[in-house]
Structures are given as C-alpha cells and as structure tokens.
Amino acid sequence: MSATRIDTAGMPARRSAAPALILLAALVAALLIAPVWIYPVFMMKLLCFALFAAAFNLLLGYTGLLSFGHAAFFGGAAYVSAHAMKVWQVTPEVAILAGIATAVVLGLVIGAIAIRRQGIYFAMITLALSQMFYFFCLQAPFTNGEDGIQGFSRGRLFGLVDLNDTMNLYYFIAAVTVLGLLAIWRIVHSPFGQILKAIRENEPRTISLGYSVQRYKLAAFVMSAALAGLAGSLKALLFQFATLTDVAWNMSGEVILMTLLGGIGTMAGPVVGAAILVGLQNFFATSGFPVTIVLGATFMICVLLFRRGVVGELAHWLESRKA
C-alpha cells in the first residue's frame, strides 16, 4: 500500500466557518435595518415561513425524508399557541413553548408510524396522518371550526415587553427566527448531522456500520417538527389567529415548494425560497391575477431550468468557477 506519511498537522483543515459567520452577520444586519424600507408585517410573515421551510429542509435536504404532512406541526402549534393566549391567558413565550410541545408530540406519533416506510410511502403516510389531524381540527370544539381562533391580545413577553407594538414584535420574531436557523445550522453541522447525511447518502450502508437508523430518522423528524411548530406559533402570534389554512395539505405543499425553489440541502435555500413565494403571494394578492397560476409557473420554471434551486444553482456555479 502507499507509503504516505501520516502527518495530522499537515492535514487539510475542515472548511472554515468564516463564510457562514459573514453570512450570519449580513443576515442580522439586514434584519435590523429592513423595517426602514420594508413593511414589518410582511417581513415577519416572511421570517415565519423562512423558519418553517428551513425546518422542513432539515428533514428533506439533510436526512432525505420527504414529508408531505408538515402542516400538521405548523398548524397544530399555531392552534395551541393561539388557544393558550386566548383561553389560558398565558404570556407569549409560554404560548410558544406550548405550541412547540404540541408539535413534538405530533412529530413523535406521525414520525414513529411514517419512518417504518420509505420514499413515496413515507410521504403518503405523513400526508394521510396530517389529513387526519386536519379533520380533527375541523371537528374539535376548541378550534372553532371554520372561524378559527382569533381576537386575542399578544400580551407582554415575559410580562414586560409589549408585543402589540409592531417594532417590538418584529425584533422578537427576527431574533427567534435567527436562533431557530442557528439551531438548524448546529444540528446539520454536528456529529449527529453527519449521521443524518450518511443515512441520506446510503441507508443500508449506515445500518451495516451499526447505526439504528430508525432512531436517527425519528430524532430528525421530531426536531424538524419542533422547529416547524416554533414557526407556526410565531405566525399565530403575528396574525393573532390560527385557522384551518395552517393545517391544510396546501400548507404542506407550499413548504415543499419553498424548499425546492430555494434549493434543498442548502442553509440559505429555504429562506430564499420562502422570500420568493411570500413575495409573489403578496405582490399578486392585490393584482387580481390568480396567484396559484403564478406559483405553478414559478415551480415549473424552477424544475425545468434550475433544478438545484436558486441557491443550489448559485453555489454550483461558484464551485465550478473555482474549479
């Protein structure tokens, strides 16, 4: 065999974290000054969906599991947070925690059943179970059926900061979203994240190395559900209502669209995808032109012309230029 000398000091270093830190600093700076030019409510909506898509991407992009039922976690958490604020009159942070807890429980149940199957069957099971949850929400008395839960005060964060003030709310949602994105970044770039990637790349091989992949998949599923729940709770807090739209299958479809549009398996992709989708929705909402046609066309262009997604194509172009 080769006589290469093993010199650990001379080993090429892992890719440095500097670009990621620069990106993070730019993101934080942009978020701080964005409300000067951009309508804060639009920004907040965008942030909620960016976090939702990033949570979804943790599962699709980094574990290779396509869930078609993420609306259950997003909407379930939104309902419970809204209910907690309206009926239990708790502070917003407690309501958000209640929402996340709901998403975790739903994630455990749906995940434990779905990970027994792979590929399209996995997707169909998640869809079926989330539709069951949709009908539960339609029937359950506390969700108020078609009306949804609405008309509650956002209250004071930790009993101190009034979130009914738009700028307070903006900085709170921006901070929580950044923390959520950082959590995803950490999970992806961790020893655990490496095993998730290994499962994505070659599941039988990962099993043959002694990993009980079902446990890793379930853990990833629950983490993704929890973060989707956080996004749903933030959305309920922002719009002060939770309705059936949040748990319907369209919502599961939208988050897939955002992730594919931005680029699966990239950190910035879901954020960009969410920005494009929410931006288009907002722009065409007032135009009278049916927004679904625009979204459909956007998706087709994406699939036909840049299959890696916006960020994926950009990263690929930069790589190839470097090479």
Partner: peptide, 17 residues
C-alpha cells in the same frame, strides 16, 4: 462516519463538527 459510533460521537446534535 464509521468511527463515530464506537467513539460515542453520533448523537451529539449540539456539538460542532
């Protein structure tokens, strides 16, 4: 990847690479 499990470094989602 193969070394991670015997070295108990496979579930830490909070630790850096």
């Amino acid at each position: 990847i193969a070394l991670q499990r015997p070295n108990h470094l496979s579930v830490q989602f909070w630790r850096p690479l």
